[in-house]
Nucleic acid binder design. Sequence first.
DNA 1: GACATGGCGTTATAATGTTACATTCGTTGT
DNA 2: ACAACGAATGTAACATTATAACGCCATGTC
Lengths: 169, 169
Amino acid sequence: MVRDPDQSASGLHAEAHHHHAIDADAVQSRARAYATSKSIPFTSMRQRVLALLAASGKPMAAYEIAEKLSDARRVQAVQVYRALEFLQEAGCVHRLVSRSAYFACDHLHGSGETVVFMVCSQCGAVQEAASDVVARGLRGVAKTTGFKPRHPIVELEGDCANCAGEPAG
Amino acid sequence: MVRDPDQSASGLHAEAHHHHAIDADAVQSRARAYATSKSIPFTSMRQRVLALLAASGKPMAAYEIAEKLSDARRVQAVQVYRALEFLQEAGCVHRLVSRSAYFACDHLHGSGETVVFMVCSQCGAVQEAASDVVARGLRGVAKTTGFKPRHPIVELEGDCANCAGEPAG
DNA sequence: GACATGGCGTTATAATGTTACATTCGTTGT
DNA sequence: ACAACGAATGTAACATTATAACGCCATGTC
Ligand SMILES: [Zn+2]
Ligand SMILES: [Zn+2]
Ligand SMILES: [Zn+2]
Ligand SMILES: [Zn+2]
């Protein structure tokens, strides 16, 4: 991820050329820790969904996940939704409202943090960036209208650095 | 609507206590003007959908619109979606991704403008505010990651000024 | 072991959105 | 007036996304 004023390639996947599969071990550890802290099990289904999303590195629809996880036994969408609910609570997975898709996240988001999801229209990849400027702007408009914000949704549709160069077909 | 640094009650519906039905005439004029400019008709169905949304003043689901518009003849969802497509192009209607709902808008949005939708969890009312600060923040994170943004989605879930006072059930 | 809790597997259903196609309507050209 | 064309409509079917209901089973507690 990338923080606002910081232009360096700190957490940035600098040379990731094909879709940056995120750190599966790290994200799994966080899910496990969350489960432990809440005294709820990090079950097989939850692990499978998270592992798939982490390996993919791109947003996937719930039914797509169900299909990929199906082998002899068919995995039903409802099972995926249940796993996703846990994983979102654990902060390991986000939902893209612009695509009704889910993707794994290996960042640790602070509670007050406002995160921007940048979704590439061409390749579907998602980049995250926390922005204090955006957060301040949101607080500003909320204050102006007396609105008490609880949860922000910020997504950008556009073209990622890779695809912007090659107009693509 | 409300602009960023401007704290005054310029365009703000100051004493609107019940859900501020927006200016139906104004929004209809804009739709008609858009239709004329594109040489496409502002048909009856489009007028009916817009009129209903303007009168409601609150976001409505597509199927809800279809039901309200149905009389002797049943209005099908697909007809509503087609009308909504036109109305969104005309800039008279927005879609709330957080609710899959649509609402009329009587503002005139500049092309580069970043608009924040503030959705009250309790009463469902929506306020709009254009924010230059948010726009700048979004440009910032995009630039940092080399992302070329095309269309921003910014929504805030929370409690409006009216409902924040009365905790409500 | 009895019991409660919670996840799983299954089925069904709700809610949202789209495709396909024939028909109707308004416009345009002759 | 008439044919022709494109756009908007009406209708049906379908696709996608998400949730509800319910019984089963594993786990932990008493
Ligand atoms: Zn994240
Ligand atoms: Zn891309
Ligand atoms: Zn608006
Ligand atoms: Zn409210």
